[in-house]
């Protein structure tokens, strides 16, 4: 992954490992048989739950066991419990998945179980803490797409708890998320997941603001700033981000500047080029632009990409940069299409 090679054991070491693992495999097999038997006999009790914990600890990729665990939770553990008890059970379950995630940060089943547990009753889950938790995970590996996917789940859960008419709160959540995403992109522009999240957020914010009273929200943000004297910086950032969404044309212009900046910083980073392709060809954007405006953007980008490729050629004995060439072709095609259909 990302240039880090898997370590290959020598034949000798492999044999030794196999020998050592034999005992473990034996315990594992018998535990597995045990749990599968319990599952077939529809046993839902504490003993069965504990056994799934043990088994999943050894092998978190075993989705059948996760399913069985959820059956136990629904039919036994969570059944007829007081609110306090529920909270405790859920937090224990989250703790269990977190210890698992630390060991296997890219295992679908674990993330999935966490999502399921939190969705059990969205009202009693603490979403702010979830957001902080996943931020920590992304600090450790900013390109773990499971984490980014999970963020979107958290945000949509938070949104689902807000009154549909409370546009201000909805917008604010996404502005915060945009700030976070920008921070992560700045930290390392080579991050597909972050750019992807940006594309999602941009569309979402424009759509949310479509029917909103823009000035009203801006005023409330300003008020918020006054009330939060200590934390001005971050609210300033939200306000500045918010202003980007006043005008789509402006937004695209700035987005193009951002992209130019990124490709000149690192011309070999594919994630930026992929995001560029989305900005340049997304229906969401060009549907809202006049043909002239769109062509103007395309030409500006084309000029910069060609300029970059010339520099790249100078440095690399006349060799083109493949991403420049691909993108030039794409832009030329877009220009041709849009110039023809008058």
């Amino acid at each position: 992954m990302h240039g880090i090679k898997r370590t290959h054991l020598s034949k000798d070491a492999k044999l030794r490992k196999l020998e050592k693992d034999k005992v473990k495999i034996k315990t594992y097999r018998s535990l597995q048989d045990d749990v599968l038997d319990l599952k077939d006999s529809l046993v839902f009790d504490q003993m069965a739950l504990d056994k799934t914990t043990k088994l999943l600890d050894l092998n978190p990729e075993f989705y059948t066991i996760w399913n069985y665990r959820r059956d136990i939770l629904i039919n036994y553990v969570l059944k007829d419990k007081s609110l306090e008890d529920l909270k405790k059970i859920i937090s224990d379950e989250l703790l269990f998945t977190m210890t698992q995630l630390k060991k296997f940060p890219k295992c679908y089943c674990i993330w999935n179980h966490r999502v399921w547990m939190l969705s059990y009753d969205k009202k009693i889950s603490n979403w702010d803490i979830e957001l902080m938790t996943v931020s920590k995970m992304l600090d450790l590996d900013s390109r773990n797409f499971h984490g980014w996917h999970y963020r979107r789940f958290i945000i949509s859960s938070m949104e689902s708890l807000i009154d549909k008419d409370d546009l201000y709160s909805l917008v604010l959540i996404n502005l915060k998320e945009l700030s976070y995403t920008s921070k992560m992109i700045n930290r390392n522009i080579s991050n597909y997941s972050a750019w992807h999240n940006r594309s999602k957020l941009v569309v979402k914010l424009f759509e949310q603001l479509l029917n909103a009273d823009y000035t009203n929200i801006l005023q409330r943000l300003e008020q918020e700033k006054i009330q939060n004297n200590n934390n001005n910086n971050i609210i300033d950032e939200y306000i500045n981000n918010f202003k980007l969404f006043e005008n789509l044309k402006n937004f695209i212009n700035l987005e193009i500047d951002l992209l130019i900046n990124a490709i000149f910083t690192d011309a070999e980073d594919s994630s930026v080029w992929v995001y560029m392709r989305w900005v340049l060809s997304s229906k969401f954007f060009y549907d809202k632009l006049s043909k002239d405006e769109y062509l103007q953007n395309l030409n500006k980008m084309l000029e910069k990409v060609e300029e970059l490729n010339e520099l790249e050629k100078d440095d690399n004995n006349g060799q083109n940069n493949p991403w420049c060439i691909k993108t030039t072709t794409l832009i030329k095609e877009l220009i041709r299409k849009n110039s023809n259909t008058l």
């Binding site: 630390k102 600090d139 450790l140 390392n188």
Partner: peptide
């Protein structure tokens, strides 16, 4: 100082 993946590795 493997930038991106060192942490991943660490986990």
């Amino acid at each position: 100082a493997g930038r991106d993946s060192s942490n991943e590795q660490a986990i």
